[in-house]
């Protein structure tokens, strides 16, 4: 019996020693599946690498970068000047911004919804609460049910800045924690509308977006996102506290290489360069 406490102490000493080094990625929920696939594939090719992925929203990643609890921040929106300044105040060097993939914020509609295309202005009015009925945009009468993201999401911030022109969302919008939540909700709701990064769910379709009344409507497919003609295209970013070094650098170099970019395609996002998309 007396040996038990001693054994417990000896056993727990290794537990108290801090863990070996690994690369941590925190941030965007839009990117978390992509980050995780990258991590899986990278670790499969390099036995000693350890990559750890957590979501929580772009805002979470940025705040983790500030507190130093992550190596890489994944963000689906650019860091604001205020955030960059705060980070520079802490580290002394400006943060490094690396675009790693392209995405289009798609507008989701239920497959039963007759509406096929909307202008940016209409989408804005819908989400700020000015248009509330489907018949005002060419659909069958019925209240428009808004699905949005939580405010820690980069997609939320991107949408607010680029589509809503910084106006507030209508309070009637349901805030769901991930793109999947939004897609899932719209797939079950014929009167629903949602937005998010590339996502797959049966029962929803993409709405073609017109930049204004006069331009053609584009779907968020590869051609239009890479060309930038889809109105809500955006870059997905990695942010670092300073220039990449060591393990982190090898990983990011791999992400930007053909191998990494082909993973982007297989997950459903869009590579930085058109050439990568031809890789099967």
């Amino acid at each position: 019996m007396k040996k038990l406490p001693l054994a417990a102490v000896l056993f727990s000493v290794p537990l108290l020693l801090p863990a070996a080094q690994s690369v941590t990625i925190k941030g965007s929920d839009t990117m978390v599946i992509l980050n995780q696939r990258w991590a899986e594939n990278y670790m499969a090719s390099r036995k000693d690498a350890v990559i750890q992925v957590t979501g929580g929203g772009s805002g979470t990643g940025i705040s983790a970068l500030l507190s130093g609890s992550t190596d890489i921040c994944a963000s689906s929106r650019p860091m604001s000047e205020k955030e960059k300044a705060a980070l520079q105040a802490k580290t002394g060097v400006p943060p490094v911004e690396i675009p790693v993939a392209k995405d289009g914020v798609a507008i989701f509609l239920n497959t039963q919804n007759p509406v096929k295309e909307l202008t940016l202005a209409q989408i804005k009015d819908i989400y700020t609460g000015k248009i509330t009925d489907w018949k005002d945009v060419g659909g069958t009468a019925g209240r428009i049910i808004l699905y949005s993201r939580e405010n820690n999401s980069g997609t939320y911030v991107f949408f607010k800045e680029h589509v809503l022109n910084k106006q507030d969302f209508s309070p009637m919008a349901s805030n769901l924690p991930g793109t999947a939540g939004v897609a899932n909700a719209v797939s079950k709701d014929p009167k629903g509308i949602g937005y998010g990064g590339a996502a797959y769910a049966k029962g929803i379709k993409y709405c073609a977006v017109q930049a204004d009344d006069k331009s053609p409507a584009y779907l968020p497919d590869e051609k239009h996102i890479l060309a930038g003609t889809y109105a809500a295209s955006r870059d997905l970013y990695f942010y670092l506290r300073g220039p990449a070094q060591g393990e982190v650098k090898s990983f990011i170099d791999w992400v930007l290489s053909r191998a990494g970019q082909s993973v982007v395609v297989s997950v459903g996002y869009f590579p930085l360069k058109k050439a990568a998309s031809k890789i099967k």
Binding site: L15, L17, A19, V32, V50, I51, Q52, V53, T54
Partner: peptide, 15 residues
Amino acid sequence: AAYYLPYLPKRLNQQ
């Protein structure tokens, strides 16, 4: 708590 970790937590300061 974390969403995806490639290792099992063996030390007290891991997620």
